[in-house]
Design a binder for these strands. Structure first.
Lengths: 184, 184
DNA sequence: CCCAATAAACCGACCATATGGTAGGTTTGT
DNA sequence: ACAAACCTACCATATGGTCGGTTTATTGGG
């Protein structure tokens, strides 16, 4: 409700809340129900309040995309830190990150990212470009078809969990995939 | 334009056109732009005309879902026809079908299905249920984790092609996956 | 074989609501 | 006092949907 102007002002927190709420609505109910009003309500702010932080709905979604994509990439890079620069380092971190996303029911950056990217053609391009850059950075260690296939498998598993079509134990799938990297 | 009431009436063709146009808009521009008006325009019918065939927008999307899901399942079953009832028959047909979907730029039932299912929580449930049934029918030959992983890989590849994040040659990916089935 | 009568396909205008966005004011922080 | 955060009220448009009419196809009786 509209009482945020009487309480303490913490714009950074509100901005975060707006992004989080938009993300939650997107996974829980679908992209179509991510309206300015709905997000504002969920974040306990008025529409005007939201539009103060984000110039438009597009800006909101773009910001959400960037926010999630950054978090996602950072997580992968973080998992790579300290490991030997060898074949499959990137793929290993990638698989771990993707599987971790399905294991964590709340806050699923990957899932929301997909809902955004699949639902909107514009975001697809952004995502493709970003991913291509990320992959290019590790082309020397991870550009084989076999490794790509492992990443595909992780993505496919992740997709199946998002939809709920073929439930499998995350740990088992992860171990199975990581073992294949070791072999390759 | 609204001139369909002067020309020959072929309701079946119009119905198909409506479904096809809805599908096309969904992949090309995103689910958000699949409006009753847009679909009607694309199919060269008025809104009233569309609402005559489908009681509501939901009904349109539901029908599209059923239509695509049926076509998809039928294609898999068709690919299985005549093959020995042995380990991996279903997975083999599944992989072939999914890869064929990315190879065919026009008319991509799988892609549209995903756009629908990922974008809307309700459809996700429908898809999950349907897939579970299909899988259950072949549990005796295709319920191992290894085979599931191959299906995941096909899905992941397919997803990457939808977004355009990691382009690979379909035939190569397919052969690589099918070979793994033979081994397993 | 013709021709009403009936049903189905389709249109056009209209409606209520939801939506994204704007403008200007009020409250809080510095 | 000044600016940033936030709200209220408002606007134009888009959207899903309804309703009654018009056009085409089908069908049964003479």
């Amino acid at each position: 409700m509209g009482s945020a102007h009487k309480r303490e002002k913490k714009p950074e927190a509100v901005r975060r809340a707006l992004l989080d709420c938009a993300a939650r609505i997107a996974i829980e109910h679908g992209l179509a129900r991510v309206t300015v009003q709905a997000v504002a309500d969920a974040a306990d702010v008025t529409k005007g309040g939201l539009l103060h932080h984000f110039a438009s709905k597009q800006a909101l979604l773009d910001a959400l995309f960037v926010d999630l994509a950054d978090a996602y990439e950072n997580e992968i890079e973080a998992r790579m830190a300290g490991r030997r620069h060898a074949t499959g380092v990137f793929t290993r971190a990638y698989v771990e990150t993707v599987i971790a996303d399905v294991a964590e029911p709340s806050s699923r950056p990957r899932a929301i990212l997909a809902v955004l990217a699949i639902g909107d053609a514009r975001m697809r391009a952004l995502w493709a470009e970003r991913f291509a850059r990320m992959l290019g950075r590790h082309a020397d260690t991870d550009d084989t078809l076999d490794l790509a296939t492992l990443r595909f498998a992780a993505d496919g598993y992740w997709l199946s969990e998002l939809i709920g079509s073929d439930p499998r134990d995350p740990a088992r799938v992860r171990d199975s995939l990581l073992q294949s990297i070791a072999v390759a």
